[in-house]
């Protein structure tokens, strides 16, 4: 914004918004002071430091373990269950949690534990596809804009800005009303709406790295643009990209389940965690467990993903720490 001469436009402040540092990842004031005074206080390798930083983040480690357990349960659970995912137990319809049906049954007697695990599997699968696809699209576009600059970058930047002002929820709703969504189409749609967040980060990193000496050296050695971009610069942007991709899993889970809750997400009978809540919200008064259990899984997954992302940020992207 040329109107703000100091280069500190309010937009910048907003854009740089929550750096998301949990208490443990801010370096202790003593270390900051010591480093500021020019003291050389570490002597370990980068890999070792990364691992140490991550390990110190006990919550992130626990989160990773819980996530792995949840994913295993979602994948293995339905096989071990005596009930099929659409099998109806007509003697026990609308039941709350019982010994036979630990999560209860739905209005037509389907076992909710199997459906919850399957729902978790679909939700997680969608979220992973969204994270991968978003990261892929965002990284490629952001890299192209940041590396080539000029007109290319202007187009990339304006596209990013345009996507950022489009109300994503409205688009999802409008499209969702018209087209019955499958897990893959929802994932694809979310990725199309979310890629600018990654692209902006990657573009910024490429803008910064392309002026650095190792890139200039590679250029002088005659390396072509794709090689410089993907062999020389990309590895340096690995940390922030992985962190953002991880956090995207949480964003995708929340968005997907919200859409399902509003009735425009993945169409039944395919269960997702959001679908399960949508199907049961009418029985909130009589059987809250049918809403609270899938809700609890959503929160557990997102919480773990956010802790994990934060730990990874601390470990892989220490420069992002505010100190």
């Amino acid at each position: 914004m040329s109107e703000t001469p100091s280069g500190m436009s309010p937009e910048d402040v907003v854009d740089d918004a929550p750096p998301g540092s949990i208490a443990a990842d801010v370096p202790s004031d003593a270390a900051v002071l010591a480093e500021r005074e020019g003291m050389n206080i570490t002597s370990r390798s980068f890999g070792r430091q990364t691992w140490d930083r991550f390990r110190r983040h006990r919550l992130a480690l626990i989160a990773a373990i819980v996530l792995a357990l949840l994913a295993t349960a979602f994948i293995v659970g339905p096989w071990l269950s005596p009930y099929g995912f659409s099998e109806r137990d007509v003697l026990n319809m609308r039941s709350g949690p019982t010994a036979e049906h630990p999560f209860g049954t739905d209005t037509i007697g389907r076992d909710l534990m199997v459906r919850t695990f399957l729902g978790g599997r679909f939700s997680l699968r969608i979220a992973l596809i969204v994270a991968l696809l978003t990261t892929l699209i965002g990284t490629v576009i952001g890299a192209i804009g940041g590396y080539f600059g000029g007109t290319v970058d202007t187009i990339v930047n304006q596209t990013i800005n345009l996507f950022l002002i489009i109300p994503a929820l409205v688009v999802l709703l409008v499209v969702g009303v018209r087209f019955a969504a499958s897990p893959n189409s929802i994932a694809f749609l979310l990725a199309i709406l979310l890629w600018p967040t990654i692209a902006r980060v990657v573009r910024g990193l490429f803008l910064q790295y392309k002026e650095q000496e190792f890139v200039l050296a590679a250029k002088a050695a005659g390396a072509r643009a794709p090689r410089i971009m993907f062999r020389h610069i990309l590895p340096n942007t690995f940390g922030p990209i992985v962190v953002n991709a991880t956090l995207l899993i949480g964003v995708a889970i929340i968005l997907e389940s919200t859409l399902s809750f509003l009735g425009v997400g993945v169409q039944p009978p395919t269960p997702t965690l959001g679908n399960l809540i949508e199907e049961s919200k009418g029985q909130l008064d009589s059987k809250p467990s049918a809403v609270l259990i899938p809700g609890g899984f959503i929160v557990a997954i997102t919480l773990c993903v956010n802790f994990l992302g934060d730990g990874l940020r601390d470990a892989l992207d220490p420069t992002s720490r505010k100190g």
Partner: peptide, 12 residues
């Protein structure tokens, strides 16, 4: 001295 995660820094 400062106690940091990397050990004790004896500054003075």
């Amino acid at each position: 001295a400062f106690h940091t995660d990397d050990g004790v820094v004896n500054a003075v």
